[in-house]
């Protein structure tokens, strides 16, 4: 079996994987980083979004071996100790989550948007979320959360 090496949340990790092992399987099953979720098998729902080299990616649609040498960030890597990332805070403050299952993917996707666009409009947020499905919130408070989180990041509270 091939060995894969990558940096996950700032730590060098390596592990033997099958060639068919998906990045999400490597994260969840080998590294026990279970905050990244799998909600579908057609790359639609976005519950599995992580960052690979700083860009949001669906970890159900990448092979682990494709991430050789990459920097991977998961939801577990956002908070600085007890200090939440502003986007995490924004989701809590604006009730941007209910069951929590889509939330890690939403937050990771939102971060990528906020880094590209520090003041996204409601419409820009809604269009950006094309690849993330939520069944609980009706998106209303997710959109509010992302707009608030982006503003907080732009205000220098983190990023």
């Amino acid at each position: 079996m091939p060995t894969v090496n990558m940096n996950v949340n700032g730590e060098a990790v390596s592990g033997e994987v099958e060639a068919r092992t998906l990045l999400v399987q490597f994260l969840r099953e080998k590294l026990r980083l279970t905050g990244t979720h799998v909600g579908c098998d057609t790359s639609q729902c976005g519950a599995c979004v992580v960052h690979v080299d700083g860009v949001s990616a669906k970890s159900c649609t990448m092979l682990a071996v494709q991430c050789e040498g990459a920097d991977v960030t998961t939801i577990e890597g956002l908070a600085d100790g007890d200090a939440l990332h502003p986007m995490q805070e924004a989701f809590r403050d604006n009730h941007g989550l209910q069951c929590g299952f889509c939330t890690p993917g939403m937050i990771m996707s939102a971060l990528d948007l906020a880094r590209r666009n520090s003041a996204p409009s409601e419409q820009e947020v809604r269009e950006w979320l094309e690849g993330n499905i939520c069944r609980c919130t009706g998106y209303h408070n997710i959109v509010k959360s992302i707009m608030a989180g982006a503003r907080a990041m732009a205000a220098g509270q983190g990023g």
Partner: peptide
């Protein structure tokens, strides 16, 4: 919310 926004929810598959 804290456990969910930090990826520490414990769902059955976890």
């Amino acid at each position: 919310d804290y456990r969910f926004i930090t990826g520490q929810g414990a769902y059955t598959d976890d």
